[in-house]
């Protein structure tokens, strides 16, 4: 027994990587579809978007790049699908230069799925440098900050912007990010203009952003792939009710792998600790 524990506590890192890779790959190949439980921060964002009247405008800010794509892209798609399925007009912008293509791809994909019209139901404005100035500028006049959309079309000519001038006409801003963007949205758009803010953040950033929920500075929050999976679950349910084809559940399937990987990590940590204390005891004896 002691010998086995000794061997397990001295596994080389390549073996541990191999075990973890198997723990992730097998659930991807053979989905378990573990049950989803929706947490209050996710439910709050969903409920807020549900409460908006049809035709309201919301702004989705693609503040992430490909480095955090598996966590933030599914939540971006899920929120887009929810908004568009409810006939809420979507304004897409990008404040991370690495995310311009991702924002465009996501918004086009969902618009095509739900047969939405560019310029009327949704618009993509593209990237603007200088986060703070852009966030503050949107509170004054969107038309001055983004005179043209991503394609170079003057936004004055787009029907969606006929009655959208600033935050007063935008019901919600959702920032999808793996960095400090949501905090800046709170500082510049919420504190200064009273704009409602929600966030979709990576797991690394989640713990930093929980205080903003408690104070009500965030309407809701999606944290990591778990948050994305919960929102996908709610959107899947909505699509079934509306008789729409259900979208592919990337994050929900990913949660199977995460659950198995976490179990493996917990077991490895426990074995490592048992081995450490046994060795210490042996050395002391």
């Amino acid at each position: 027994m002691n010998n086995l524990i000794h061997k397990l506590t001295h596994l080389n890192r390549q073996t541990i990587y191999g075990i973890l890779a198997l723990g992730i790959i097998l659930p991807l190949l053979f989905p378990l579809r573990l049950p989803e439980h929706v947490s209050p921060p996710v439910q709050r964002l969903y409920d807020y978007i549900e409460s908006l009247p049809e035709g309201s405008a919301i702004l989705l800010s693609v503040d992430f790049g490909p480095d955090v794509l598996p966590e933030t892209y599914p939540m971006f798609l899920a929120v887009l699908r929810h908004a568009m399925a409810r006939n809420i007009r979507v304004i897409g912008i990008c404040l991370n230069p690495a995310g311009i293509g991702l924002g465009l791809e996501g918004i086009q994909k969902v618009a095509k799925e739900l047969h939405k019209q560019y310029g009327t139901d949704y618009v993509y404005l593209g990237f603007k440098p200088n986060l703070g100035a852009t966030m503050l500028g949107l509170g004054e006049d969107v038309h001055k900050v983004f005179p043209t959309d991503y394609y170079g079309t003057p936004i004055d000519s787009l029907p969606l912007f006929r009655n959208v001038r600033n935050y007063n006409d935008i019901a919600l801003v959702v920032s999808f990010s793996g960095a400090s963007h949501p905090a800046l949205w709170v500082a510049y758009a919420n504190a200064r203009y009273g704009e409602k803010i929600a966030a979709g953040v990576t797991g690394v950033m989640a713990a930093d952003y929980y205080p903003y929920l408690q104070t009500g500075q965030f309407v809701g929050m999606l944290a990591g792939m778990k948050g994305a999976a919960e929102y996908e679950y709610l959107v899947e349910k909505l699509f079934r009710e509306k008789g729409l084809p259900t979208p592919p559940p990337f994050a929900i399937r990913g949660m199977d792998s995460i659950s198995i990987a976490h179990l493996l990590i917990i077991v490895l940590v426990i074995i490592g600790n048992i081995g450490y204390f046994m060795e210490r005891k042996q050395k002391g004896a």
């Binding site: 973890l20 797991g203 713990a207 990913g254 976490h262």
Partner: peptide
């Protein structure tokens, strides 16, 4: 949360 984030990135690539 960081562990979950890193595993998520690996899931994305796999």
């Amino acid at each position: 949360y960081t562990v979950m984030a890193r595993v998520s990135l690996l899931i994305g690539r796999l």
